[in-house]
Design a protein around this nucleic acid. Structure first.
Lengths: 218, 218
DNA sequence: ATTAAAATTTAGATTAATCTAAATTTTTAA
DNA sequence: TTAAAAATTTAGATTAATCTAAATTTTAAT
């Protein structure tokens, strides 16, 4: 298999590619992997030799088909372990990322498939991110940022774009957790902040920055 | 914390010290860690610098107090994960060693304490080996090798001295699993093999080699 | 008590992942 | 369109863990 380090690069490239199908830059990889650009270049050569990425000097990289497969598999493991930590061990949604970051590198397909069954084949992790099946297939829900909603529109909170503990704890405090139904009551022109009603009862005002990172199903 | 490699050396030294309080030899460590003696010497210097072992050139090593703590903690993690794999995910007792070997290096005290609770604070792993508590305390049961039993003596199978899949599968096939009550019916002088009755009904003959690796509570 | 064998350590290399500093290429903007 | 800035790559080191081969120390056997 691949080393932990290689797996972390694949994951980083996958996440950075999300949406854009343009190549991912050396610098952006360095940033998310907490390394320097020179180190990234070295690793890119190695991953290219292994046919995991398409790499042309100075032009950024994309994952090959097998690179995508490898990355998706790591993400599958990460998300299933997060579900385990929250559902079975009682962790909060803002506490699981770092532990899952370690667990995602455990190598055993049987283990993960059994874990998946044990957890009841969950469709999403505790942050609402979809969990690919063992063949790598996602079932994507169409999600919309709260910051893109119109006045009067309603939806159900189903995901987040930001996974930091600080952000998740803030949402928790506001009562804006997954499954909460919200209705936009006011769009504040002055600073873009948004007023909404949660679960028909709680009135909340959130900044544009927060709104951008909450995703709903309409 | 310590690197995976360091942890594996600590574990190896701990297991090799079991019983004997004499120092552990460089060669024996090399054997169980699948390395060469020269590599072991290098690592011993490093572990000694970190005060995890007592090391005097040419004289073998013992773990220091903090070395023992670290080793016991790894063993605790290994055994709890084995219980998880068997009890929750449905693995067989001969299938869990390698996966637990990876899981034991996951670093999170909270995780392990919660796992312990989730599993109902088991006293032993699927092979009957005792699980230390979070402070490192073992509750040792007094176990006897079947090869040391006398004719007519009875006991309950409560552990094994050999964890290879081949051996465990063999026991499974014979119906000699943990919890089975056995009574010695005959000690064969010719080759030391032993005849016994399992669960009052099944008559079995096992070699001396097998008998040495089955442990009972009398 | 010597000496041969076995065990251990040292010396010197190798590999993976990283770094800094310098060189090169690409991008941007006057 | 060309020069400065930004991004990227190369060159040369470093650290952790390992190895082989040679040197040293301990053990065991006559």
């Amino acid at each position: 298999m691949h080393s932990f380090t290689e797996e972390n690069y694949l994951k980083a490239i996958y996440h950075l590619s999300d949406g854009n199908n343009a190549g991912v830059s050396t610098n952006s990889i360095a940033e998310v992997t907490n390394t320097k650009a020179a180190s990234v270049t070295d690793m890119l050569k190695k991953l290219a030799d292994k046919k995991l990425i398409n790499y042309v000097k100075y032009q950024g990289v994309t994952l090959t088909e097998i690179g995508v497969k490898a990355a998706v598999n790591i993400i599958r493991k990460h998300r299933l372990w997060e579900v385990f930590l929250v559902e079975k061990l009682g962790f909060k949604w803002d506490e699981v990322h770092d532990i899952a970051e370690e667990l995602e590198h455990i190598n055993s397909a049987v283990l993960i498939d059994r874990l998946d069954d044990f957890l009841g084949n969950p469709a999403a992790d505790p942050h609402g991110d979809p969990i690919p099946d063992s063949t790598g297939n996602f079932t994507h829900k169409k999600l919309v940022k709260v910051s893109d909603m119109k006045e009067g529109q309603a939806g159900t909170i189903s995901g987040v774009n930001e996974h930091s503990s600080a952000f998740l704890k803030h949402l928790e405090k506001l009562g804006l957790t997954l499954g909460t139904k919200i209705t936009i009551t006011d769009l504040i022109e002055f600073d873009g902040s948004i007023m909404l009603k949660a679960d028909e009862t709680k009135e909340r005002t959130i900044s544009r920055e927060v709104a951008k990172n909450i995703l709903v199903i309409l």
